[in-house]
Amino acid sequence: MVRTPLTPEERERGERLGRLLREARGGRSMAEIAAHAGLSAETLRKIETGRAPTPAFFTVAALARVLGLSMDEIAGRCALAGV
């Protein structure tokens, strides 16, 4: 299956998500947060750096739970401009 390329706006949304997660993680290690969320540290690294700009809903929900973020906050801070 060929995936449709992401738009620049979708890439920016992924970068905003990554920044938000890094900020929320604070001084906690990537490995610690990933383990509590049931992810690999590499998956979290890709999300935080924008290399995985469209993570699955349940991945984001697990990270939100571990980091104490609401899904509304994540959606609001990462929404595409003009949407």
Rank of each mutant, 00 (worst) to 15 (best):
C78N: 15
H36E: 12
L17I: 04
L67K: 02
P55S: 01
H36V: 06
R25Q: 07
T43E: 13
E73S: 07
I74T: 10
A24W: 08
A31M: 10
I33V: 15
T54Y: 00
L17V: 07
S29H: 14
R45E: 03
A52R: 06
G38W: 05
L44P: 07
A81M: 04
L63W: 01
D72S: 14
A79G: 11
L17F: 02
L69W: 05
A34M: 09
A34V: 03
A35G: 06
A34E: 06
A75Q: 05
G38E: 04
V60A: 01
L44R: 07
E23M: 10
E48S: 12
A35E: 09
M1Q: 11
A34S: 02
L17H: 01
L17D: 02
C78M: 03
H36D: 09
L80I: 15
G27P: 05
F57N: 03
H36P: 02
A52E: 13
R22W: 09
G38L: 05
G76D: 13
T59D: 00
M30F: 01
G76E: 15
L6K: 12
A37V: 02
L69Y: 01
L63H: 01
R19V: 05
G14W: 00
R51G: 08
A81H: 13
K46G: 06
R25E: 08
A64K: 05
L17C: 04
F57D: 12
R19E: 14
E23D: 09
A61Q: 14
R22D: 00
A35D: 06
V66T: 06
F58N: 07
T49P: 00
T43F: 03
E9I: 06
G82Y: 04
P55M: 03
L69E: 02
A81T: 15
K46R: 13
A56R: 09
T54R: 09
R11P: 02
V2H: 11
E10K: 13
R13K: 11
